[in-house]
Design a protein around this nucleic acid. Structure first.
Lengths: 186, 186
DNA sequence: TTCCTTTTTTACCAAATGTTAAAGGATGCC
DNA sequence: GGCATCCTTTAACATTTGGTAAAAAAGGAA
């Protein structure tokens, strides 16, 4: 829980009173490997702080699972498209390892907007940060080759290479597993 | 100005008092075609409401200008990566036609967070909306072919096809002008 | 109109990526 | 150990896209 508040404090200092209120809203959970936390036809109602483990987002647009994001230790995650727009978006969440999380419901987030002065600013900054991150990822698809995108992935997620099947990484950078295998060979 | 407030009201109803404060912060401007509002080495300090005209964002990662976004009548825009992270990001803004805008400085946005109750919520929702939009655009690069991305572009921006050079559209969907010309032929 | 510039199309060949299929490795279970 | 399953590599061929170059088309200005 301490690391969670360290992460939140990066956005804005949180008073002790608010800390208490926020802490009450986060629920601790263990998620077994292979669990689907949100199905594509469901609405994501929770936002997760990943204490330990690995998760991915995935969509299934053409009969094949595509990885939309990876999350590892000490990262926030959710099906953001669904969590934000409050409707199913086809995106699901999969635990790729046994995971330990703190989760908070959208309902509780809205409640904290009224109960604390900090929460609104934190969520705004998180959305801004995610926005910039998503934009940069889009730009990379516009001007980087598959090989360059793979090299960026290795740089950003060196530890995932060991434990994640190659196929999941390939779809994350927008190519097939065979193409990625070919790229790695060189 | 009325349409601007219609757009803002979509996020949250705005009181008359707040409306006055907000209105004071927006400055009306005419931007001649060809103007570069923000250079890549500069920090974007303004957020724009495009009353009339067309703009694009662009980056120059490999000696060639890449379109990052298009904005037309009644849309908000800025170099969001730079505006949010408060540093230069290489992204510049170009007026593709004579434009009429209302612009507000980042400084004034921050001031309105304190002076009004609505602004924080509006900006949070804008960031969330932009976040979801950017995510979906990324996903499209992951699983759509160039042809499919072009068809989506035509669907989203039918009017731009008439007035924007093809090359700018091609880089927006991540291909060369020649490839797009080939795709259109079929 | 004519000239000049910009934009678009076309062609040819090279490079990158997809598709399909098969084989080899790794891992876990009985 | 042996079997089954999943993961990874490899190969051959098809398709898409890039790079270069040139021609055709479109638009603007004198």
């Amino acid at each position: 829980m301490e690391k969670l508040f360290n992460a939140l404090n990066r956005y804005i200092p949180i008073s002790e009173a608010s800390k208490q209120l926020i802490a009450q809203c986060f629920v601790h959970k263990h998620i077994p490997k292979g669990t689907i936390l949100v199905q594509g036809h469901q609405t994501a109602r929770y936002f997760y702080w990943l204490v330990k483990g690995t998760m991915r987002g995935r969509i299934n647009p053409k009969g094949e699972l595509i990885t939309t994001w990876f999350a590892t230790d000490n990262m926030f995650c959710s099906s953001m498209t669904s969590f934000i727009s409050r409707k199913p978006t086809g995106e699901s969440i999969e635990a790729l390892e046994d995971c330990e999380v703190y989760c908070i419901s959208r309902h509780d987030v809205l409640r904290l907007f009224k109960q604390t002065t900090e929460m609104s600013s934190i969520v705004r900054q998180m959305a801004e940060e995610g926005f910039v991150h998503a934009l940069n990822r889009t730009y990379q698809f516009q001007y980087l080759s598959a090989k360059e995108r793979y090299e960026l992935f290795v740089k950003h997620y060196p530890k995932l290479l060991q434990k994640i099947p190659l196929g999941m990484i390939a779809t994350y950078i927008g190519i097939t597993q065979q193409s990625l295998s070919r790229i790695r060979k060189k």
